[in-house]
Structures are given as C-alpha cells and as structure tokens.
C-alpha cells in the first residue's frame, strides 16, 4: 500500500531542531512576511488574511505560511501551524507544479455552478508538499492519480461571480491543468 500521508513537512525528527529551508516570498513586504505578533499586523494587506492571500494570488503568486519549526506549508496562510502549533511562520511562494493525489467529477453541482457541470475536482500535492483542492481543466476521463499538473489562475467568470459574496467578487479562481 502506498502512503498518502501528507508529505507536507521537511522535519524528519520532531526532537531535533530541523533547519527548515524557507524561501521567503520576495514580493511580500517584510512587515507581513512573518506570522502576526500584534493585532495591528493583521490588515487586508497581509497574506495572513484572505484578502491579502487572494491579492497575491491575483498577481500569480500562491502563498503559504511555512512553519519554521516543522516545515509544514499552510495554504492559505494562517497565524499558527496546525501540525505543531508553532507561530514561527514565514510567507513562502509555492511552486506551481504538483501531482494529483485524488480526483473525482462533480455531476450534481452547487446551484450556482449548474451550467458548469460536470467538472473535475482534484486534491493536488504541490512540489513543496503543500496540498490544495481545485478544479481540473480537463475531463474526469483524462485525469488520473499521480498525474503531473500545474496551477493556473484566472479571474472569476459570470457564474463564479454570481456565487461570490461581496468581499469575494474580485478573488481569482485557481485551477489545475495537465503539466
């Protein structure tokens, strides 16, 4: 049996101070590049908030909070690591390539996306170990586990805007296409 355990970590031994190699995103201002330690740092400009995360995604940068203590990559970034509890996090740009871990086809969609069905959904593990669910741009029959894919970002289309809340209207849509 192969293992689908999230490989989203660089740490091989929790008892050692594993030096986690984090490639801090150069386009994130320094004051937002590490996890917030005061409430004032949590503005919509910070990628530790969803508006900040989607603003970066709109510029083509998928950002994670990378845990300095255990190496887990958190997408979207949030102020603490779910895996080890640490708040020592740095914003890291994620690779845009990965592989399909699992996939399916939505045949009965949420009402707002009725005209779009059927469409393919996959869980993708990026080359950093971070995982993300998203639509795949090809039919279910053309998708398979371990298939290499790349991330693509686009503006929301009419039906996607129709299902968006007011604060989500400009947030881009991420998809995966065969690499």
């Amino acid at each position: 049996m192969s293992d689908n355990t999230n490989t989203n970590t660089n740490a091989t031994d929790a008892d050692t101070d594993a030096a986690v190699d984090i490639d801090v995103d150069v386009d994130t201002p320094d004051k937002y590049a590490t996890a917030p330690r005061s409430p004032e740092e949590l503005t919509s400009d910070s990628p530790f908030t969803l508006p900040g995360f989607f603003a970066a995604l709109d510029e083509g940068r998928l950002l994670a909070a990378a845990c300095e203590d255990c190496g887990t990559r958190l997408v979207p970034p949030r102020p603490a690591c779910y895996d080890c509890g640490s708040r020592n996090l740095k914003i890291e740009r994620q690779p845009e390539t990965g592989t399909v871990i699992s996939y399916t086809e939505v045949r009965t969609p949420p009402p707002a996306l009725a005209d779009r069905a059927p469409y393919t959904i996959a869980i993708v593990e990026l080359d950093s170990g971070a995982r993300l669910t998203g639509r795949v741009t090809v039919p279910y029959a053309d998708t398979e586990i371990d298939m290499p894919v790349s991330l693509s970002i686009r503006a929301p289309e009419e039906d996607e805007r129709a299902m968006a809340l007011e604060h989500e209207l400009e947030w881009p849509i991420h998809e995966f296409e065969p690499a």
Binding site: V75, S102, Y103, T108, P110, I121, T133, G134, W171, I173
Partner: peptide, 15 residues
C-alpha cells in the same frame, strides 16, 4: 479553497 472550486459532499467523499 474548496467551496470556490465547486466541491459538494459526494465529491468530497469521492476523493
């Protein structure tokens, strides 16, 4: 991430 991708309960369990 998930809702905006159009996931549904059956599709989540299908994964």
């Amino acid at each position: 991430t998930e809702q905006r991708s159009g996931v549904t309960a059956p599709s989540q369990y299908a994964l």
